[in-house]
């Protein structure tokens, strides 16, 4: 049986891409890239399932594989370390050519077997699915294979428990109490720690973003009030720039209230610029803050 023209087009477009993506799994140095490639293959498979009169499986494929399994892979990759790249030098003698040989041999053998086999004329699933594909599946699954279905359910529960048990870690030290933590903070005072929480970011008339430092009682900006990550990335705005901006805004609002100022749109547009300038300013201050806070 030959497929319809549309299906053939879909296949010939998708199949090479999927093979390429699969090769990406084989050759990508970074595990994350490999995972993305596999995800592509799986989505492609889902599409092919739908094309092959298996819409239910197509949906399940997306939900289970791309949705659950591959996400789990990504989580684990995050845990293990996203950035780590594999060394591709082979350590086991002869393993590389053996692997290549076996891979190619397998392709040849499997294709040979498929080419050799005499398949009956394909009948398609239209006859069996007098209702819909999920219903037809359910009839078989909950009819002939109900016992297997239950057993698989047990297997899933067992696997969930196994995941819990295997990843469970027993505490090796005593859980620190509040008193211990407080004592530790007091003891850390000479190293520049503070007992109180760090100051919140600055709150201004027009601006309460995380990247603006607060002003101390003395009117000086407090660098600690900006989150450390922002400071490291150099995305901190300087308090003076914010203040200057406030000044201009206040002045313009006064004019607008008098009815002589520019349109409100322009003010919005202008807000972005000082940010950019602020970041360039903050670049220098960040260098000094490297050995920064506990924030």
């Amino acid at each position: 049986m030959t497929a319809s023209g549309a299906e053939a087009a879909l296949f010939w477009v998708l199949a090479p891409l999927m093979v390429l993506a699969a090769l990406g799994l084989l050759f990508a140095r970074k595990a994350v890239h490999a995972a993305v490639c596999v995800m592509f293959v799986m989505v492609g498979l889902a599409i092919l399932y739908v094309a092959q009169e298996a819409p239910f499986l197509g949906v399940v494929q997306v939900v289970v594989y791309t949705g659950a399994v591959m996400m789990l892979f990504l989580f684990v990759l995050m845990l293990v370390g996203v950035d780590s790249a594999d060394s591709l030098t082979e350590t086991i003698r002869g393993q590389r050519w053996l692997g290549v040989l076996l891979g190619l041999g397998l392709v040849v053998v499997l294709l040979g077997v498929i080419a050799q086999a005499a398949f009956p004329p394909a009948v398609g699933l239209a006859a069996t699915e007098e209702l819909t594909n999920p219903v037809a599946l359910a009839r078989v699954l909950l009819g002939d294979y109900v016992l297997a279905m239950e057993v698989v359910g047990v297997l899933l529960v067992t696997a969930a428990l196994a995941g819990l048990v295997l990843t469970h870690r027993r505490r090796l030290s005593v859980r620190p109490t509040q008193r211990v933590l407080a004592a530790a903070r007091v003891a850390a005072l000479p190293q520049g720690s503070t007992l109180t929480p760090l100051p919140a970011p600055g709150v201004y008339a027009q601006n309460n973003a995380m990247d603006t430092p607060a002003l101390g009682p003395d009117g000086e900006p407090l660098p600690h009030s900006v989150p450390r990550v922002l400071r490291i990335r150099g995305q901190e705005r300087s308090a003076t720039a914010v203040l200057a901006e406030e000044e201009t805004l206040v002045a313009r609002d006064d004019l607008r209230l008098l009815g002589v100022g520019p349109a409100a749109d322009a003010t919005v547009e202008q807000v972005g610029d000082p940010v950019a300038t602020g970041t360039t300013d903050a670049g220098a201050t960040d260098e000094g803050d490297e050995d920064g806070e506990v924030r």
């Binding site: 199949a15 093979v19 699969a22 090769l23 590389r96 891979g103 392709v107 499997l110 294709l111």
Partner: peptide
């Protein structure tokens, strides 16, 4: 296609 994907997967396991 299934055969090729299978072989690539197997090669991945080996390599």
């Amino acid at each position: 296609l299934a055969a090729i994907l299978f072989a690539i997967g197997a090669a991945t396991v080996l390599l």
